[in-house]
Amino acid sequence: MIMPQQIGIVGVPPLEIIRQLNAEQAAIIDLDEPQLVLPIDQSDQYLPRVYCAILRTVLLNALNLRLERIYVDVGPGKCDCALHVAAVLKDILSIPVIATRNTDTQSFGFPVCQSSLPLIEKMRRITKGVQSCQPWPQLPACPPTAGFWGVPPRDFSILAPFPDSTHIYGWTRCMENKTPADLELESYCNPAVPTVFFAQSFCAKTALAKHLAARHPKALWVDCDVSAGSSARAKIEAFLELSGVLGDGCAAG
């Protein structure tokens, strides 16, 4: 039996690349997510410690997984740091490392972002959806009682305090829509809903997160590095409680 090729992806490669990989029945590995139980400081040989934990995770995965090739999105839908990591990977790996620039504009919608699924499950489905050229099936929309704006965190446990009626905004919504470079969509948030604005520490998107949070009437800005500490979770829990966001139901808001 022929085993499918294992292909690594970083960010959201263009739809034509994902279609090609789906047609090849390749096993797509999301290198942004922790795939191995390894100390992140093993990346220190190649990247500074003061660097986005997601991209340090990318490097760890790329060094330790058996991959045929890697696609790294380095366009406006990712960040300049990904471009630099792609250059490092090209230099230290023997497999092809292919830089892409995703400027896709076809909208696939974002039903998962607006659903009543638990927030961690929403995030899992959205990040998994990058590996397919197909949209998620439609789900009933739930009126929001809270918002999570930002990128998928390296440590999903930071999402645990949120009610199921949380809507997702920011770059994660762009991921589900398969338009990661859509700054207008990324910048959208609901001013009527208490919203946590999140970015990984040392990520370029902290600037937009902080800016939007400053303009939002019911906002908390949070950043985390490798893992979600008790302090960050306590801040989120206190913010949601003080904002009157209680329970897991889909109450109108």
Rank of each mutant, 00 (worst) to 15 (best):
Pro4Gln: 05
Gln5Cys: 09
Gln6Trp: 05
Ile9Trp: 09
Ile9Ser: 10
Val10Phe: 11
Gly11Asn: 07
Pro13Ser: 09
Glu16Trp: 12
Ile17Ala: 11
Arg19Ile: 12
Gln20Pro: 09
Leu21Pro: 11
Leu21Asn: 08
Leu21Cys: 11
Glu24Asn: 13
Gln25Glu: 15
Ala26Lys: 07
Ala27Phe: 13
Leu31Asp: 07
Glu33Val: 14
Pro34His: 06
Gln35Ser: 11
Val37Arg: 15
Pro39Val: 06
Pro39Ala: 05
Gln42Gly: 11
Ser43Asp: 06
Gln45His: 12
Tyr46Gln: 08
Tyr46Asn: 06
Arg49Ala: 09
Ala53Tyr: 10
Ile54Arg: 10
Thr57Ser: 08
Leu60Thr: 07
Asn61Arg: 08
Ala62Thr: 09
Asn64Asp: 11
Leu67Ser: 08
Arg69His: 06
Arg69Leu: 13
Tyr71Glu: 07
Gly75Ser: 08
Cys79Thr: 10
Asp80Val: 11
Cys81Tyr: 12
Cys81Ala: 15
Ala82Leu: 08
Ala82Gly: 09
His84Cys: 10
His84Gln: 14
Ala86Asp: 05
Ala86His: 07
Lys90Pro: 10
Ser94Cys: 04
Ser94Thr: 15
Ile95Gly: 03
Pro96Glu: 04
Val97Leu: 05
Val97Tyr: 05
Ile98Leu: 12
Ala99Lys: 13
Ala99Gly: 02
Thr100Tyr: 04
Thr103Gly: 05
Gln106Ile: 14
Phe108Glu: 02
Cys113His: 03
Pro118Leu: 08
Leu119Ile: 15
Glu121Ser: 12
Arg124Phe: 05
Gly129Lys: 08
Ser132Asn: 11
Pro135Ile: 01
Trp136Ala: 13
Pro137Val: 00
Pro137Phe: 00
Pro140Ala: 05
Cys142Leu: 05
Cys142Tyr: 02
Pro143Ile: 08
Thr145Glu: 12
Phe148Leu: 07
Gly150Tyr: 01
Gly150Thr: 01
Gly150Cys: 02
Asp155Pro: 06
Ser157His: 13
Leu159Tyr: 01
Ala160Tyr: 10
Phe162Asn: 08
Phe162Asp: 07
Ser165Asn: 07
Thr166Asn: 02
Thr172Met: 10
Cys174Tyr: 02
Cys174Gly: 03
Cys174Met: 01
Met175Phe: 13
Glu176Tyr: 03
Glu176Arg: 03
Glu176Ala: 02
Glu176Thr: 03
Lys178Asp: 04
Pro180Trp: 00
Pro180Glu: 00
Asp182Thr: 00
Asp182Ala: 00
Leu183Cys: 02
Glu184Ala: 14
Cys189Gln: 04
Pro191Thr: 00
Ala192Ser: 10
Val193Cys: 00
Val193Thr: 11
Pro194Thr: 00
Phe197Pro: 02
Phe197Trp: 00
Phe202Lys: 04
Lys205Glu: 11
Thr206Gly: 02
Ala209Ser: 11
His211Ala: 11
His211Phe: 09
Leu212Asp: 00
Leu212Tyr: 03
Leu212His: 01
Ala213Gly: 10
Ala213Pro: 04
Ala214Asp: 14
Arg215Lys: 15
Pro217Ile: 02
Trp221Phe: 15
Val222Thr: 02
Cys224Ala: 14
Val226Thr: 12
Ala228Gly: 13
Gly229Gln: 08
Gly229Pro: 09
Ser231Val: 13
Lys235Glu: 15
Lys235Phe: 08
Ile236Trp: 07
Ile236Glu: 10
Glu237His: 11
Glu237Ala: 15
Glu237Pro: 05
Gly244Lys: 09
Gly244Gln: 08
Cys250Asn: 07
Ala252Cys: 11
Ala252Arg: 13
Gly253Lys: 13
Gly253Val: 09
